[in-house]
């Protein structure tokens, strides 16, 4: 599979809009940093030297300025350069992985990392890899047992657990 899947050639976003979005992201972060620095004080204090907000203030300023320049450069770029940032088909592929990953990260605090990992790998293998169910269950099944032994027993690192582990008395 080297080509994007069927009907996916259209641009989902242009490069220009992506550039502007990223520049805006930097500007917002810069502004947040400046706001907090002003609260902390940006000057020189008698006993303690530069106040805690001294450094963040200036780097926030630089970040805002740089993002304005980057945004201006994106706006001034020639139309021809506005190639597709991501095509619809590509975006679909990216999202088929990103969305489950985000859900997985969210689930960890509810059902523990072991069960969540099992479900995540199994469903990934089933949906995207089209493996038969037994394989999709066996691979993550073995893996989480290995992880459990390595982390909980060897290295004595306690990973997040959920109701299932508590029920089994492993919590």
């Amino acid at each position: 599979m080297t080509e994007g899947p069927e009907g996916g050639g259209r641009a989902a976003f242009g490069q220009k809009s992506a550039e502007l979005a990223v520049a805006a992201f930097f500007f917002v972060i810069g502004a947040v940093v400046i706001a907090d620095s002003l609260r902390l004080g940006t000057g020189w204090q008698e006993v303690h030297g530069p106040r805690p907000g001294y450094f963040p203030f200036y780097l926030g300023l630089i970040m805002c300025a740089a993002s304005l320049i980057n945004a201006a450069r994106a706006l001034l770029a020639k139309r021809a350069e506005d190639k597709a940032f991501v095509e619809v088909g590509q975006l679909r592929l990216v999202l088929t992985v990103l969305v489950p990953t985000a859900v997985y990260a969210g689930l960890v605090s509810w059902i523990g990392i072991y069960v969540a990992s099992f479900l995540y790998i199994a469903l990934f293998m089933r949906w995207l890899g089209k493996y038969p169910w037994w394989k999709a269950a066996a691979v993550p099944g073995c893996l989480i047992v290995v992880f459990f032994v390595v982390f909980e027993n060897w290295f004595k690192v306690s990973l997040p657990k959920g109701p299932l582990e508590n029920l089994l008395g492993l919590g």
Binding site: L167, G169, G171
Partner: peptide, 10 residues
């Protein structure tokens, strides 16, 4: 919930 089950188990 979590502690509930833990308590039940203990």
């Amino acid at each position: 919930m979590k502690t509930g089950i833990a308590l039940a188990v203990s």
